[in-house]
């Protein structure tokens, strides 16, 4: 009797836990079952300018403009991996702030956010499988963008990536690139935000990525700042934001199409 009850509890528990898995539609084949436990992927978004590595306080020629940056930050969210069967696995609560920045004065100097470089995120609990593409958004989806009190992943109001005074449009800054146009000695503040700038990026991997078990896998994607600024003339718009909708849309479109490139596995 007792064993029967324990078994029932076990079954119910498994069913309960299974019901919560966001990966309901991932079919586990017999082969996978024997192979493996969920695995880990280290995803690196390596900032570059064309063929060069990106560094702060270095002057780059971008579209004939001499640009020097002290801050590059952007939100990555809703990371999804697609396997060879076309099944999608969504990383839960995936809101990550990627950045390479010097110390930042927050809220008009009320406090300081320390200098930081963060290019790698660790994605855990990925069902074992063979993955062919990765999808993620640049920015924050409307549900969270419109309600700063909702908490998920790394979302925070305290790191200077919210528009709490930017035009009083209380939402997140999706991407921020700050520095100087050294040609004209002009300060640059190139930002995207508002729901209209939210973009989804889909990248096909050059070869299938086997994830699962104890060995972490690595995936590197380059983030090309020259691509982000494709078609942008900073002499015309040294400040890009909600008040320059055309330039902001260009930047957002560039994030979708001209910025991210998968580094072939054998070149890592």
């Amino acid at each position: 009797m007792k064993n029967y009850k324990l078994a029932l509890i076990y079954v119910l528990t498994v069913l309960t836990l299974a019901a919560c898995n966001s990966d309901d539609d991932h079919t586990i084949t017999g082969e996978e079952l024997t192979a493996t436990l969920p695995g880990t992927l280290n995803l690196t978004l390596d900032a570059v300018v064309g063929q060069e590595d990106f560094e702060l306080h270095t002057t780059y020629d971008i579209e004939g403009q001499q640009l020097n940056f002290n801050q590059f930050r952007y939100w990555i969210s809703h990371v999804i991996l697609t396997d060879t069967d076309g099944e999608e696995f969504s990383i839960e609560d995936s809101y990550y702030l990627m950045e390479e920045t010097e110390a930042i004065s927050i809220q008009d100097g009320a406090y300081e956010y320390p200098a930081n470089k963060r290019e790698t995120i660790t994605l855990t609990g990925i069902p074992a499988g063979s993955y062919t593409s990765i999808k993620f958004a640049v920015g924050i989806d409307p549900a969270y963008n419109d309600n700063l009190s909702l908490q998920a992943g790394e979302l925070s109001q305290l790191n200077g990536m919210t528009n709490i005074s930017w035009m009083w449009h209380t939402s997140y800054i999706f991407a921020s690139l700050k520095g100087t146009d050294t040609g004209n000695d002009t300060q640059l503040q190139l930002e995207t935000g508002l729901n209209s700038s939210y973009r989804t990026v889909v990248l096909t991997l050059d070869k299938d990525l086997e994830i699962g078990g104890d060995t972490d896998r690595n995936l590197t994607i380059t983030t090309d700042i020259a691509g982000i600024l494709n078609g942008i003339k900073v002499t015309e718009t040294p400040v890009i934001g909600a008040s320059t909708p055309e330039a902001m849309t260009t930047m957002a479109d560039n994030f979708e199409s001209n910025t991210f490139t998968v580094v072939p596995a054998d070149e890592e």
Partner: peptide
């Protein structure tokens, strides 16, 4: 400029 009271409060506070 703000969608709901939960987000709005950040503006006067900050």
């Amino acid at each position: 400029g703000s969608t709901n009271l939960e987000s709005q409060a950040f503006a006067p506070l900050a």
